[in-house]
Write a protein that binds this DNA or RNA. Structure first.
Lengths: 188, 188
DNA sequence: CGGGAATAGTTGACACATCATCCACGTTCG
DNA sequence: CGAACGTGGATGATGTGTCAACTATTCCCG
């Protein structure tokens, strides 16, 4: 990105080409603003955050609204401690509750409450509308396809790279699986 | 006031098309993993975070390594309180220091220290290499161009939308400026 | 000059993510 | 059986981002 900023950099370093720099800066900026905007929209228009939303989507996606903690972590590509903390906060607000797993004394379920269900049902339409308005109304069909391909290429690299231990571990048993990260109906 | 006459907007809600959903999920997942990976790489390979890096880039970009706080905020598209907190933490670690502005009693400068300069010089090459390896080595020239165009389209919408008060205010005087924002740890 | 309004920046409270560590339970294998 | 080890999950410390107040200065205008 910022190659000309460092004239003193060692000659061995391969900086990005000008075209790549422009693309990178545009991407980074867009991505930052888009995230910020989606977060803001969600917390203004509803009583939940994007993170809450992601968790609730996974729960509504299962028939009985019960998911094991680590399974949630795998779906969301979150660390287990992140899930643990977040579920604790959501439980405090009544969006979910914990239940012990009878078949495995160590495990526990995260269970969707009625309040959680109505929270996500209330939040979903505005969120989908926002995504559509900000992203897809701006793009041609070809660009949408291109966005998907680019994203998949980069993600594949991230998931297969030797450095990506967590991702690799999560996807090891099913490398090609498409994780329904945001569920079909709601998130977009 | 609150026009909540239609709490159940179900029939009017326009969900995304299947193609759009696939693209959105791929993008969201890629973006989350890429951010996480860049943050991890930076904090493992160096003594600074991505946020530190972004600040230091702005400082090295000026001849005297001194930037007003709010100018920093505008460049980075950060809130002023975020800058304030972050600079306070960086100051505690010796990466920057504050200086009062003589011409404006309210203002203050953020000044790059020697330690800050060597920190970013140490961190930059590995970061650039990571971005190249993870992103641009995966993409064709056409895809790089496409990524830039898509990003610019979405960003333009974000910046011009009536809802984006902060962005609009920031860019009002220089709408076309290219900001090397460098992302935050926004994740997911 | 004086008294608001805008501006520059800080602060505190809180939500969130990460890391290391810990504990309870299960599995394996002697 | 029981010790070693792996797994599911919780916890606390720390760094980070956001929001809402707050202070201090400067600007504007009568």
């Amino acid at each position: 990105m910022m190659c000309q900023l460092f004239p003193y950099a060692e000659p061995v370093t391969r900086w990005l080409e000008p075209e790549q720099q422009r693309a990178w800066r545009a991407y980074v900026r867009m991505q930052g603003e888009l995230n910020a905007h989606l977060n803001r929209q969600m917390s203004v228009d509803s009583e939940i955050s994007m993170a809450d939303f992601a968790v609730l989507v996974q729960l509504t996606d299962t028939p009985d609204g019960r998911v094991r903690v680590l399974e949630l972590a795998r779906f969301l590509h979150w660390e287990k401690s992140r899930i643990s903390h977040h579920v604790a906060r959501m439980e405090k607000r009544g969006l979910v509750r914990r239940e012990n797993c009878s078949s495995d004394g160590r495990g526990s379920f995260v269970v969707l409450t009625d309040q959680g269900r109505s929270a996500i049902e209330a939040a979903a339409p505005a969120h989908a509308e926002t995504v559509r308005a900000l992203v897809f109304d701006q793009l041609t069909d070809a660009e949408v396809e291109s966005l998907r391909e680019i994203s998949e290429k980069i993600f594949t690299r991230l998931a297969t790279g030797e450095c990506a231990a967590v991702i690799a571990r999560c996807d090891a048993d099913d490398p090609m699986e498409v994780v329904p990260e945001e569920s079909g109906r709601s998130e977009a």
